[in-house]
Every structure is written in C-alpha cells, then in structure tokens.
Design a protein around this nucleic acid. Structure first.
Lengths: 144, 144
DNA sequence: ATCAATTTTAGAACTATTCTAATGCCACGA
DNA sequence: TCGTGGCATTAGAATAGTTCTAAAATTGAT
C-alpha cells in the first residue's frame, strides 16, 4: 500500500484541516463522510460508504454521499476508478498509484507505482493539460 | 491510429474469417454487427452501434448488440473502455494502445503506444496472469 | 424432416447515479 | 439579535445503461 498523506487521519481536527486545505467548506456531513472514508486506504463504492457512515447511528443521505464524493474527487482527495459499467470505486488514497483488478474474484489490489506514464506536455492533444493517468492491469486466475 | 489486423475488413468473407479465427460461431446478426463495428477504427457505445446497424433496414435487437459485444470482448476482438459510470465504449481496434480522454469535450483519442506497461509475471498477484493493461490519460482544456 | 442446442428477440426488470424541489443550516451585516 | 442570502442536505422520483426472461427462430447434425 503506497503511503500517502492521509494514512493516519482519524481525528476530527485532521480531517477538517485536510478538507479546508483542499478548499472544501467543512460541514457536519462532510466531516462524517470524510472520517469514514479516510480512516484507512480503501477502495469503496458509494453504497458501501453509505452503509459504513450510517452504521453508527448517524444519518447521511445517499445524495449527500454522491455529492461529497464528487466534490472530493474534483478537489483531488479521492480517485474514481471505473472498473466496469456497473460500479464506480472511490480510492481513499489519491496519491499516484495503479491497480490490479482480478476479473475472477473482483479484487482490486493496489500496485506500487512501478511505471509512471511520463508524458511531455507536447505529447498531449493540442490545448490540453494532463489531469490524471488511470491505469488498471486486468488479471485473471491462472488455469490449473 | 495504430494499424491493426482489422483495419481493412469490409467484406463479408473477411469478417466471417475473423470471427471464425477467434472461435466465434458466425450468425447473420453477428456478421452484420461485426461489419459495422470493424469497418473502421472507432470508439462506439452499444447504443450508437445499434443505431448504426439498424440504419440500413437491417433489424438487430438491443440484446443481441450487447450479447455480441460481450462475446467479441471475451474473445479479444474489441476492448471495453470504461470512462465513467454511465458509458462503456467499445474500441474496434483491440491492438495494444491507450487513450486520451478530454473531460471537457468528451473526446476519446487514440494514443500511439509510447509506454508499454511491462510487467513481469512475478510482479502480478500470485496465481494470476495478465489479461489487459488499460490506460486512460485524462486531460482537460487548457485555461486561457 | 426432426431434434437438440444455441441464438435472437421484445420488453420487463434492475440498479447505479442524477435530478428535483422543498427544507435546513450557517455566516454575515444591519 | 434578527433577518437575509446562499449553499447544503434530504427523500424520493426520474433517468439510463445494462441485464434478464421466456418465447420464438435458427442452426447443424442425424
């Protein structure tokens, strides 16, 4: 697991600071969501996060989960990972790394960044700048 | 545009051969679909392909489009590209190459393979073999 | 021609995500 | 302190891409 700046964020104050540093207005729901999300490095769906957040008596709506995840993604706090048509994963570790996805088991596994897509600005389409480089190596279980 | 073996496939016989070579039982609908799909290198959605196929009087159902695209993808004839939660693109060029995706315009642009993800078997999770390496470089329009 | 197996079909069902419009909350200025 | 304006949040409806279902059609083999 690639270490990142968010790894040890567990306490309210640190979460608040992190949101603020990324220009995100802190609200009660966003704090709750961020605490659950950044408690550890994880690949999680909106639905799973909703369950996780509402497990402890707190009540946050589905719409707010989606709104917040979208906002966090915009601000670079989480990375959206689109593995297939029916599921978006949010990676609470936004630092540069890639993934293995096992099509047999559905596992999504972190990969140490071993090969950085190094694109010169001039290699990009005219008038554009790079935002992210999304890499997923799809694997399957070895036949016996 | 990376040249591939399918580039010039326009005639029935060649399409049939291509399907057969990949272990795909040839049917009337699959031939029609494959002809439209492999007429040129393109990034196309299931819906767009349905329209394209049914433009010329022929009638192929939505379910068959999905079934065939899924089958072609399984057999390595097309590549599925998941850009966002709401759209799967099928790339009629299955040869190894990557993409630029412009989040502002929605354009999906081919990239010459410039950087091959070279993973040794030993780098993959235990007991797995690589299937595909999916890379999407997300770009956005330069601010003026 | 008949058979079993596979493919195709229309439309319903499913589901992740987005939208809507009403309500709630907060900071700020008078 | 009170009111105001602007977001944020909410429940539930709407949307849309994809999958499922069960019946009909097609296929190659016998």
């Amino acid at each position: 697991m690639t270490p990142n700046t968010h790894d040890q964020l567990l306490k309210k104050k640190q979460v608040e600071q992190m949101l603020a540093e990324h220009g995100i207005f802190v609200t009660a729901q966003r704090r709750i969501i961020a605490e659950a999300l950044f408690a550890r490095n994880q690949h999680i769906t909106a639905d799973q996060l909703l369950d996780l957040v509402n497990k402890n008596g707190t009540k946050v709506s589905k719409a707010t989960i989606y709104n917040s995840l979208g906002l966090f993604a915009d601000k670079g706090l989480v990375r959206e990972i689109h593995i297939n048509a029916s599921k978006t994963f949010y990676d609470s570790n936004a630092s540069r790394h890639h993934h293995f996805y096992n099509v047999d088991t559905g596992d999504l596994i972190d990969m140490k960044e071993r090969l950085v897509p190094l694109f010169l600005q001039s290699d990009l389409p005219d008038g554009t700048v790079m935002e992210t480089a999304d890499v997923v190596i799809r694997v399957r279980n070895q036949s016996p």
